[in-house]
Each structure stands twice: as structure tokens, then as C-alpha cells.
Design a protein around this nucleic acid. Sequence first.
DNA 1: ACGCCTACCTGCTTGC
DNA 2: TGCAAGCAGGTAGGCG
Length: 288
Amino acid sequence: MPELPEVETVARRLQARLLGAEIRAAEVLWPRTIVYPQPPERFAMEVSGGVVHRVGRRAKSVVVYFDDGRVLTVALRMTGALIVAAPGTAPDPHARVVFDLADGRQLRFRDARKFGRIGLYPGRGRRRVADVFARHGPEPLAPSFSAARLAGRLRRRSARLKTLLLDQSFVAGVGNIYADEALWRARLHPLRRADTLTEAEIRRLHRAIRAALREGLAGGGASYRDYVDPDGEPGLAAERMRVYRRTGEPCFRCGRPIERIVVGARATHYCSRCQPAPVEPASVDQQP
DNA sequence: ACGCCTACCTGCTTGC
DNA sequence: TGCAAGCAGGTAGGCG
């Protein structure tokens, strides 16, 4: 489940391997992977000749910038992986798009569950890459993502914290893993309403989101099943999780067993002592 | 604005 | 051992 730390790791390592590389040809093995341009044959034609100038990240997408200004976006979704394969490497049965590089290597988009999406956009013109990310919220690791800015966004929302953190238009790049980790670090219950947070709690949440993401990044991302870097190597961050997939195991702060509930159809892990349940307002008809 | 649902997908895990 | 059901969850779109 690649989230910000995993996608950022992929982007950094891809840039180290692909800088200056030229795409000679592309083969689309699962057409629905391609969102633009259509049809996929046109995508394959147009992406050919692209020379990699830079590889970056926006939200949970890897963004490849070509020399001529065009931009390739790769949303890994659940099981997507970008693998750089040496010449002669055995074909990958889960490869959905294969890019042949001029030096003989291949860049493979592997995606067992076929949720991933790839687009190629002109640097200027009608269909812009900016539009792809127009509805995304701020980057939580950007210097401009201040506690004050988070406070402003939280105050206007009545949604549960867990739901909000997963909402990419609220903050970009946080998924199920780091949402749970951030809430544990902030000692905030996943079902707390956003507009009930005190200033101190907002500051804790702000620090916690960034700390959880940074630790994931430091470990090269968290591998549970599918996530691997461009060399096919898993990350180490899964071993450092405080609550995610630790149901029944002791809380690292207080020892109480970690609990698992379902919020918005998502598995949610938390400590019921460190993250006290929200106090619901007393109902009107509660007279004795 | 929000919660809830469905669809998209396949492979691993679980239970009988 | 085999097989079916359950589960994993990012995102878009629809409904109330």
C-alpha cells in the first residue's frame, strides 16, 4: 500500500537510476492502466522518445518529467510498483506497462490488482498535469504545511479524524497505515470530530503526521505485501509501526493491547488508553 | 459537507 | 489437500 513515504522512496531511487535515460518504445499490456492519452496505442507512441529529466512525487503519484517538458504520472494505488529491470531479466507476469529504454534496460509497471493508473501530459496545452492534481490538498512535508494551516482546515470540518486524514483533498499522501500511526503519536482517537480539537491537540496532530511520514521515509517505506523499490527491495518501515496491524499486541506507551475497529470500511488500529474515546454530547432526551 | 455504498481487481489467508 | 469465502484498501462516482 504505497503512501507518501513509499512513493517518495520510489521517486528518489528511480531518479538515481533513470536520469538521462531515453524511452525507446512502450508496450501496454493492460489497457485500462492508461488514463491519458487514449487509446493506449497512442500513449505508447507518444511516450517513446521521452528522455528523463527528473523524477518527483506529488501526493501518492510518481511524476516523471521529460526533457521536452512532457510529464508522466504514475499512480501506484494498491499494488503498483515501478521496477528497473536489467537486460535479459525474465518477463514479469504482473507487468501492465513495459517501457524499453535505449540502453537495453526496461522500466516495468507491475500491478497485480490492476488499480494503478498512468497518464502522459503535455507541458502546456489543454490537458495539463496540474489538472490531475487540482483536487489534492497540501503536501504534509512541505514547509508551507504549518500547524496554523492545518488548524484552519480542521476547524471547518466535522468529519472524523481518520476519515479526514484519508481524504486526499484534505492532505495529500496519507493512507491507512500512516493515518493510524499519526493518530497514535498524537494521542487522538480516530473517531474524534475534527472541529473539536484544541490548539494543543492540533499542534500534536501536525507534529505527528510529519513524524510518522518522516520515519516511514527514513526506513525506505513500509512493506507488507506488495511494496518494493525500483530494485525490487522491500522497505524496513513496517517493523517500526506503533499500531498498524498490531491488533492485540501491547501499546508501546502503556502496554494495553492495541484495538482494531472499522472506520469508513477501513481497518483502524489504536490504543484505547492513550487515545481516549471522544465524549459525545449528551442527548436531549436523556432525562431520568 | 458528510457518511455510506459500490465498483474496480487479484492473491494471500482462513476455515471447514 | 482442496476449495470457497473473507480480507486487504486507494480512489472515483453515486445516493441520501
